[in-house]
């Protein structure tokens, strides 16, 4: 009897976590572009976030941003600002907003929106050059990947 109850409880917790994820179109940005709540409903993992930031097929953030701590990864770009000390300049909600959709913070920024799924001109099927097969598109990063990236960025402190 007791083991069964535990099983039911686990199931309910699992279902609860899925419900807590915020869909791209439901994300609430404040007037400065910040997002207060976790997109996945869970905490981010900075170790996973470091992988997303440095991996070409994932966030590929280093393509445009240099990070001194990440000197093991070659060829950091210089299109965006250096991310050293980024957690001293922004709080978690602000960083979440910038990663999810930087255009809400900086109108017209070149930075792609990593948690957005509609509103594109000629959306493609990834890098094939062909038309997108689904609408809305899967966002560039999942809710949890955004949280992981934010958790990693929060470790980049200089002060």
């Amino acid at each position: 009897m007791k083991p069964t109850l535990i099983g039911v409880t686990c199931l309910m917790l699992g279902a609860g976590a899925a419900v807590a994820e915020t869909a791209p179109q439901a994300v609430e940005y404040d007037e400065y572009g910040a997002v207060a709540a976790s997109l996945s409903g869970a905490a981010g993992d900075p170790v996973e976030g470091r992988v997303v930031v440095s991996t070409k097929s994932m966030g590929n953030c280093v393509s445009c941003h240099a990070i001194s701590e990440m000197s093991d990864v070659p060829f950091h770009g210089e299109v965006g600002p250096v991310l050293d000390g980024v957690a001293d300049r922004w709080n978690e909600a602000e960083l979440r907003g910038i990663v999810a959709n930087a255009k809400m913070t900086y109108d017209g920024t070149i930075m792609p929106s990593f948690y957005k799924d509609t509103g594109y001109v000629r959306p493609g099927d990834a890098y094939t050059g062909k038309a997108a097969k689904v609408a809305p598109l899967p966002p560039l990063l999942t809710a949890q990947q955004v949280e992981d990236v934010v958790a990693y960025l929060m470790t980049l402190k200089e002060e």
């Binding site: 594109y120 001109v121 000629r122 959306p123 997108a132």
Partner: peptide, 12 residues
């Protein structure tokens, strides 16, 4: 041009 537009994840 085709390659550049493709690399924006667009229908080129």
């Amino acid at each position: 041009f085709k390659g550049c537009v493709r690399d924006t994840r667009a229908e080129t």
